[in-house]
């Protein structure tokens, strides 16, 4: 199979773009015409051939450029990747999970040879070949979490289980929807979700935590979350709000179709074997309104969802300031 990787940017001139195939497989998150919080969990992986759910860790046309963007973000701010000392073992578990999955699912792109603890990893798209000793961090250029997540799309949180709670004790976070690993590291499940409006009162987090604590080895799950982002920017972090926050004011009726993106997070949950930690990958997919509206059903539904959404959620998801322009744009596709 030949694969194409886009040459594109997620900052500056923002040349990020989706091919027709990437639009077709975009994980559109709404299954009804209205939006409310739900835990919406399904087993993962598993989905139609070619879908973003087919494999454990989806590799798409944005792979190489996303990894370049992550490297830029890390060079400016190394605190985007942190691992408290007791989480190193979980980092190795995650490295194993990703390498084994990618080598199995994309044999044309990745190869893993293992002879006991002597491992040999080949990543063809990024031109990486590495021999190392599993569980010996001195044999890798970075810690295990940072090493493998510099080669894997999406953000990664590693959660430590103790006292019937989960603690955000390690992560690689460079494509986040306005939250900070440096601020949240070491917090428990309720603490790091404290900014989410309404959900705690609805009991959403109690149920979600109970579910997560029960996730077992050999059975992973997924859910979709979403927000709205102006320009195809991965690094919408609080640390860099001064760079992307003002861009929200650049939306006009003329440019909203190209500049306003629906940002979908494919979140997955994995119980790791040696550490008993939970891995929580958060994969970000971006699609502009113009591309989304090539699918008439998506255009119709997105119009209704964003028109009728609870104002508190429009504010939390950061698009209240542009909601009128967005809804008017989408209304133009909803004549049926």
């Amino acid at each position: 199979m030949t694969r194409h990787f886009n040459t594109e940017t997620f900052r500056g001139d923002y040349t990020y773009h989706n091919s027709p195939e990437a639009i077709r497989r975009f994980p559109f998150p709404f299954d009804q015409d209205t939006y409310t919080y739900s835990v919406n969990i399904a087993p993962h992986p598993g989905g139609p051939t070619g879908s973003t759910f087919e494999f454990a860790f989806d590799v798409d046309e944005h792979y190489v450029s996303e990894m370049q963007d992550r490297a830029i973000t890390l060079a400016e701010d190394p605190n985007r990747c942190q691992s408290l000392p007791h989480m190193e073992l979980a980092g190795w578990d995650l490295l194993e999970l990703i390498m084994v999955s990618k080598a199995r699912d994309y044999p044309d792109l990745f190869t893993l040879n293992r002879d006991g603890d002597q491992w040999h990893w080949i990543n063809r798209p990024l031109g990486i070949e590495q021999r190392f000793t599993f569980l010996d961090p001195a044999t890798l250029p970075y810690g295990p979490l940072e090493y493998i997540t510099r080669q894997t799309q999406g953000d990664f949180a590693l959660l430590h289980e103790r006292d019937r709670n989960l603690w955000l004790d390690a992560g690689m976070i460079t494509s986040q929807a306005d939250w900070s690993l440096d601020f949240d590291v070491g917090m428990n499940f309720f603490e790091w979700h404290a900014p989410v409006p309404k959900a705690r009162q609805m009991g959403v987090f109690d149920k979600a935590l109970k579910f997560l604590l029960a996730v077992e080895q050999q059975q992973a799950y997924r859910r979709l979350n979403w927000t709205m982002t102006v320009n195809p920017r991965l690094d919408t972090s609080p640390e860099n709000y001064h760079k992307w926050g003002p861009e929200k004011r650049s939306i006009t009726p003329q440019n909203v179709g190209q500049k306003q993106f629906l940002r979908v997070e494919l979140q997955t949950f994995w119980r790791l074997p040696r550490s008993n930690a939970l891995a929580f990958p958060i994969r970000c997919y971006l699609c502009c309104l113009e591309d989304l509206c090539t699918n008439p059903e998506w255009a119709r539904r997105l119009h209704l969802v964003l028109r009728d959404i609870d104002p508190v959620l429009a504010d939390y998801k950061g698009f209240a300031v542009n909601q009128k322009t967005i809804v008017e744009y989408l209304a133009g596709f909803s004549c049926v």
Binding site: L84, P85, H86, L89, E161, R162, E216, Q217, Q218, Q219, P273, S275, N276
Partner: peptide
Amino acid sequence: VSAPKNLFQLDLR
């Protein structure tokens, strides 16, 4: 048998 589960893990801190 079930897959392994752990309710008594070491606290590696």
